[in-house]
Write a protein that binds this DNA or RNA. Structure first.
Lengths: 260, 260
DNA sequence: GTTAGGCCTG
DNA sequence: CAGGCCTAAC
């Protein structure tokens, strides 16, 4: 089973690239982030014509996630509140969470808030959001021990995940509070699929559009697949496909594919 | 001597097309309209690198004209008030007029207001603007008997200049008042270079972006070269080059080239 | 409808 | 630098 995660930075702008990629990389589930489109305007047909089942959870202009699955998913769930009914529904105003089950594995597709600048209101939102995510996963784990949690985490857990031109000290996506919040989540029983196979630096999944960052490989590894033990043991590979980042008008993120 | 006029609908968006065209069509002066950029942001280098001298007169977002000349121009003049010092300077808030002399011929490059809808405030502005233009030309003619007045006139003088899908009756760009205003100007001693060589219909210089107008050749001939007698007599050709209109992301206007 | 620029966000 | 939204223009 192959699961891919890809922040496409607008599905409508990236549609042709995503469809081409899906044609050449026949993954079982493609997890999209930053679709940036309300559900009624999501381009479903190109995916159904390829034989995929799209499950979408979007909003206008910002955020938005989707699961594109080669077979129908079971128990698809949009947002936090579907799993945490007592949660303040404000946490679902931003569409950042969608999940569904395939072959007994729950795929949790996340677009973690970026956080803007350390100490900002958005940073506090990010930390709060990660606390909610932990509760959400705790609940899911009760009925779904096999989870592949993937997406754009906007967090690089280790310094090796960040190019060394960056002053990591107190940098958004690398600050201690957000790293600790993510570690708290992983402590529920998740492990990084990519690091099962690769302990090298220089492997990134996101490169800023500015300052020719991709050409100089000044990237960050912030798109992840985190697996619960049984799935982690089964995992056979996890790779970052940087080819789409080389195209004209690319997303700033590259897809990451795990096989288990 | 070859003079071209081209409403490029943003020089920054069309830069590559314009530079390519200029490389393949080595005109002596290229008159641009709707550059849509303030002078400090006008891309001068691509033109100077081709050996051209750019003279620019622009504003933010709207209008803007430029003369791109293979040799330095003499007596370059921006706006109406440079020639009509007593004129209300409000007439130069919109950057629509630039002129300069080459080999004794004054090139007057114009972007005539579109006028929006008949009877609208913008329509009245167009008619007023054309009256000012007449005064401007009268003054210029005192010292420059040889004039090539060209640009986007946003007026089709004859029904033959308009595709027959258009209800010409009271259509902007074809109404009697604006046609009469233009005829009043031409009566100063200008003749249409294009009609010296071609009396056929179906020759257009502008096609609406909508309704696949170009594919169906539903255009208008609204970009003109008007010449004073000596220049008119010397004129050897006047053609509309529709090739650029076929490109991806074209301007809605095609260049018109006169040779004299 | 189609294309622009400008603004705001990442 | 690259999104989408807004507005204006044609």
């Amino acid at each position: 089973m192959k699961i891919a995660t890809w922040n496409v930075n607008s599905i409508r702008t990236r549609l042709e690239q995503v469809i081409n990629w899906l044609g050449e990389n026949s993954v079982d589930v493609l997890c999209l982030q930053e679709t940036k489109v309300i559900d009624k305007d999501f381009p479903l047909n190109p995916f159904t014509e390829l034989g995929y089942y799209p499950y979408i959870y979007g909003q206008k202009a910002y955020n938005g996630v989707a699961l594109i699955s080669r077979q129908p998913l079971e128990d698809v769930s949009m947002g936090f509140t579907a799993v945490l009914p007592d949660l303040d529904p404000q946490w679902d105003e931003q569409k950042r969470v969608i999940s569904g089950v395939i072959d007994g594995v729950r795929i949790v597709n996340l677009y973690v808030p970026n956080g803007s600048a350390i100490g900002s209101e958005k940073y506090e939102y990010k930390l709060g959001w990660l606390k909610v995510l932990r509760e959400y996963l705790q609940t899911l784990l009760l009925s779904n021990p096999e989870i592949c949690m993937c997406g754009d985490f906007n967090i690089a857990l280790e310094d090796i995940d960040i190019n060394d031109k960056v002053k990591i000290e107190n940098h958004i996506m690398a600050s201690e509070s957000e790293r600790q919040a993510l570690r708290d989540i992983l402590s529920l029983g998740f492990a990084d699929a990519f690091r099962k196979f690769n302990n090298e630096g220089g492997n990134y999944s996101w490169w800023d559009y500015r300052t020719a960052a991709f050409k100089r490989n000044l990237g960050w590894r912030i798109d992840h697949h985190y697996l619960t033990p049984v799935v982690y043991e089964r995992a056979q590979s996890c790779i970052i496909d940087i080819e789409p980042r080389k195209l004209e008008k690319p997303s700033d993120h590259a897809p990451v594919i795990v096989e288990f």
